[in-house]
Design a protein around this nucleic acid. Sequence first.
DNA 1: GTAGGGTTAG
Length: 702
Amino acid sequence: MAFTLPDFPAKTIATKTTTILQVPDNPKTLILEKCRTTRDLNQVHAHLIKTRLLHNPNVANPLLESAALLLPNPSINYALNIFRDLEKPDSAAYNAMIRGLTLKQSSNEAILFFRQMIEHLVKPDKFSFSSVLKACSRLKALMEGQQIHAQIFKCQWSCKHEELVNNALVYMYASCGEMVLARRVFDGMSERSTITWNSMFSGYVKSGFWEEVTRLFREMLDMEVQFDGVTLISVLTACRKLGDLELGQWIDDYVEVNGLMGNANLVTSLFDMYAKCGCVDAARRLFDRMPRKDVVAWSAMIAGYSQANRGKDALSLFHEMQKANVEPNEVTMVTVLSSCALLGALETGKWVHSYIKKKKWKLTVTLGTALVDFYAKCGCVDSAVEVFQEMPSTNVLSWTALIQGLASNGQGIRAMEYYSLMQQQNIAPNDVTFIGVLCACSHAGLVDQGWAFFTSMTRDFGFEPRIEHCGCMVDILGRAGRIEEAYNFIKSMTTKPNAVVWRTLLASCRFHKNVEIAEESLKQVVRLEPAHAGDYILLSNVYASVGRLEDALRVRSQMKEIGVKKSPGCSLIELDGVIHEFLAEDSLHPDLEDIYTAIDHIMKRIKLAGYVPNTAEGRLDAEEDGKEASISHHSEKLAIAFGLLKTTPGATIRISKNLRICTDCHNAAKLISTVFDRVLVIRDRNRFHHFVGGTCSCNDFW
DNA sequence: GTAGGGTTAG
């Protein structure tokens, strides 16, 4: 930093690491540099006292600034000492302190200094205002900010026209979420720089006013105002939230044409936008083009896969990241954990947990919630609860994850205990919490409680029931066998029922053998969503369950006529930390030959144990294929898993399914866990079923 | 002075 010095002896003071250098062509300018430790400052300070130069504000202020701004934390006290020694601190001295304190996250003290400055009748200048406003922005201290705004307004001198001051005002209001006030200052400015515009953008982004961001950007383009990379990053954030791929692509072209691809932050925003707009592969192509990828870029791409439900790609990218020697951080691990939760990849997630412990990372709310969710989705309820209890602080998301986790693992009662505990701790539930709570009621078979929560949600908390809540109610009533009531509930819904709601009812009809409402439900499902094989199978099974085999077969052939596509069933098997993915009719899988041998083996064992596929599905498959005992899709997957289990002694097998488990599958699992004397875990959507020696630990459904 | 990645539901 340079400063002017009236009468300083023309010589150089040198300490071990500090030099006050005299610039040869201007003997009055000295450069204070490399003042990086308190000791250095001490020596210079002492010298200035000795030479009586400290009384000269031109010398003292740069020293103060150096102490307040350059040095790490303890030196702020040192700066305070220098400040207190000043006979009559001027505005520059105050500014140095305010800036220094704001920089060191002591924004409260910065504002106090500003107050003191006013009390001592020291006239604030544009730097004072912009610094103290920055402190207000940090603290989101709207009231103080407005008081300062009033002072600026009262100023007789030109501060209120200073761009620096107005930028700080815009940014202060934007940080406080007061976008109307920010806009008012913005509109009143005669000159606006790119930074002014960017402050507006950052405010709209912070408040989540995504439409305003793109609107303002189009305004900027119309007015032909220069924008920069920072602008584009804000606009890209809005694009990804709005799913505005068109504008996003325009920015991509602009970045390409104007040679901005070197801006790594901008490129990260760009591919992140693509990923969140559903173009994960386009995102990956951009990501691959980045010459140097930092931890944010890696995490963003992993998150892109994870949020697109491509957990396997997410985890393999994480392994690549490790090979590239990029240290993961908390955000990386949160996304990795959510990928593990998607896949039911217990071993990998556990490794992440031990990594976190080894590195002694703080269990933040986000990290803890990700762990709770991961353990719960993998069926390890006790570990989920354990992590939850270790968390130093929790929020509504953590509680919701736990409640949902307990509910989906068949512990509905316990889930509701945690809901009341949550209320005792005065943590307000949100609408998602109620999905968990209603889910708990459905799994625990608590119809009256379910109704009570459904009513309370709107009456006591003001959440209008969303389609998901209604779906839960249908599930609660349907599972309890109150099919008519569920049907009437759907009819009375204010929101239009979707295919999921009708499908839920259809599944209940299957369980409780209600032909009439099943027929109506299928009609509605087909009307709302392009034909889905599972829906026809459900109806066919309803017919079969009441002995109307001809109708069952008719539905099956109807399926073929209409050409209903069977979505490829997909199973994921984790074997010693590696995820194996099997698609139905997957003939290219490397382990397939072994697997078929294993299936034969399994089938023999199954027959030996007297297992007869006793569901309509099993029978129909057999008839269709012209074989005596063909196995259903679900049993086949089980067989594959057990084939692997058999060839790898001691391995733990986990099967994750994206399909609802049928009774057939359940029985097979029971049987197989007995025959092989192993623990078996099956995932049915987000619920895990544990089989130990032929018994399933969650008997809420079966 | 302004800027990039994350957790709960279906």
